[in-house]
Design a protein around this nucleic acid. Structure first.
Lengths: 186, 186
DNA sequence: TGGGTCATGTAACCTGTTACATGATTAG
DNA sequence: CTAATCATGTAACAGGTTACATGACCCA
């Protein structure tokens, strides 16, 4: 999956691992986190698969850089991935995993927990509001307005998600507070 | 994470790997998929860490079974995990990854894609509606109403999520259809 | 002189996926 | 007779995380 995300970025234009790390952080990281080391490793695999070539470019005052360029076979692979079926609805939510077993703890501990989540979600929502600026930042990279539309869609998803998430938390806190009122000795 | 999910189930009562596989499918699988082979492997690790002990119980007419029982140290580990901080808001959505790069394909191909997602989401929503029955099925296991509350919360999350998801898809289709109307030659 | 940016990774480990393997009993 | 249920896994591989490593230049 990450391999294909990187391939998709390379398809916008040739770039270095370092560039990818940064663009990733400004765009894909809203729904996919990847470590720098992993990106560099995947680039090796992409090269090995013949999906991109690399060229070392010397610079002055800065370290050499390795510019990756997508190949025809890489473009085909990108298209294959986009059109393959078996759409993945499956998710892994560490958050729900923890919530599921929270009955082991007291009501008060859980109210605290949900309030902490709430604060985190505000931080995320704030980060999200700055995201449209990012699209402008990469306007030279993504000149095609059609491509920017899908970027926008993923951002809309992020915003809808964070709104729903905050509603869910509020609802959980409400339920816990009612329970506490009915049953103050817990 | 999976290790702790299994540990949480063992905390409800002693059970076999086979039992865990089934309970998992009826509950945690809504937000965490795990392979049978992985569950058996994690059980070995749990045992190695001293979080559970196992006992082989012969049966007649059926193969022997290996019953796992959580230890004190396992209970402590469960609590440690529940109370550790660094709440994980981070997600990995293969779906968004693909959506992000969909600009490579035509509008019609993308409308088809979103319609396919819509159908899948109906299937998920339907599966969700049958979930409350599952809670009753495991009523003997989770006798504490407080524990059932958190199960319910994760299900509410699932339902809220699937609703939000369908709204997002509808919105995407709407945008694509408008674009198609304005620009019929694409 | 200390921190940030530029630029590259390696090594070890942990987690998740896919494919395969076995074999008895029971219900239709 | 055939498929499902009960019950256990192993082996190989793919993907993700954590910790560590290097080094020059620039700005305050």
């Amino acid at each position: 999956m990450l391999k294909h995300g990187i391939l998709g970025l390379l398809n916008y234009g040739s770039m270095t691992g370092y560039d990818i790390v940064h663009i990733f952080k400004d765009s894909l990281s809203y729904f996919w986190q990847a470590q720098t080391s992993q990106i560099y490793r995947e680039l090796q695999t992409i090269k090995k698969n013949g999906w991109a070539t690399d060229e070392t470019v010397p610079q002055d005052g800065k370290p050499d850089k390795k510019v990756f360029t997508i190949t025809e076979s890489g473009k085909e692979e990108l298209k294959r991935w986009l059109t393959e079926d078996g759409v993945e609805f499956g998710l892994k939510s560490p958050l729900m995993m923890k919530t599921f077993f929270r009955g082991e703890l007291s009501i008060d501990e859980n109210i605290d927990y949900f309030e902490k989540l709430q604060n985190e979600s505000y931080a995320f929502a704030y980060k999200m509001t700055s995201a449209p600026t990012e699209t402008e930042k990469y306007a030279t990279l993504i000149h095609d307005p059609m491509k920017a539309l899908y970027w926008k869609m993923t951002m809309e998803y992020g915003m809808m998600y964070s709104k729903m998430y905050r509603q869910w938390i509020e609802n959980c806190i409400k339920q816990l507070e009612e329970l506490k009122y009915e049953n103050p000795d817990n």
